[in-house]
């Protein structure tokens, strides 16, 4: 689709969407939202690029390969943050009890491990949205592996 209005608008809007997505992710412990909603917003911006320009332009932002790496990496990071608490001497997924620094309530960095987990979760959800999008777009290939898609 070659539509100047759509392209121009999305080019204008995408940075703000991404910024807002990051805002929602990092403020997960303070305001409504968090890793899942923020990640979905961020992922939607990448899908918007692919839809309003073309798949190559979308793949230039985040290629399907790196999306699928981020996807596994994000989930792995979540699990490992939980394990880090065990190593630090607390229970699995312990936060303050394991010694993660908790700042002053209301500050941006005031949630210890939750902040790290939300970041991983955001990366995971954003990349999952991209991966899902590419899988549906190229569903005809019946392949299932994102790395095969040229994008």
């Amino acid at each position: 689709m070659e539509d100047q209005i759509v392209r121009l608008t999305s080019r204008l809007v995408v940075p703000f969407i991404q910024l807002y997505g990051i805002y929602v992710i990092v403020h997960g412990h303070l305001s409504p939202g968090g890793g899942f909603s923020g990640g979905a917003i961020f992922g939607a911006s990448l899908v918007l690029i692919a839809v309003s320009f073309n798949l190559e332009a979308g793949a230039k932002q985040v290629s399907p390969q790196s999306a699928s790496i981020l996807e596994s990496g994000g989930a792995l990071g979540f699990a490992l943050t939980g394990l880090a608490a065990v190593v630090m001497g607390g229970s699995y997924l312990a936060n303050r009890a394991a010694g993660f620094p908790i700042g002053v309530t209301g500050d941006l960095f005031s949630s210890g491990a939750i902040f790290i987990i939300t970041l991983f979760l955001g990366a995971k959800v954003a990349s999952t949205i991209v991966t899902l999008f590419y899988n549906i777009i190229e569903g005809e290939k019946k392949d299932g592996t994102p790395e095969k898609h040229s994008g």
Partner: peptide
């Protein structure tokens, strides 16, 4: 947890 870590390492 060992299974979930393993699952996400595999890809």
């Amino acid at each position: 947890v060992i299974f979930f870590c393993g699952a996400f390492l595999m890809p």
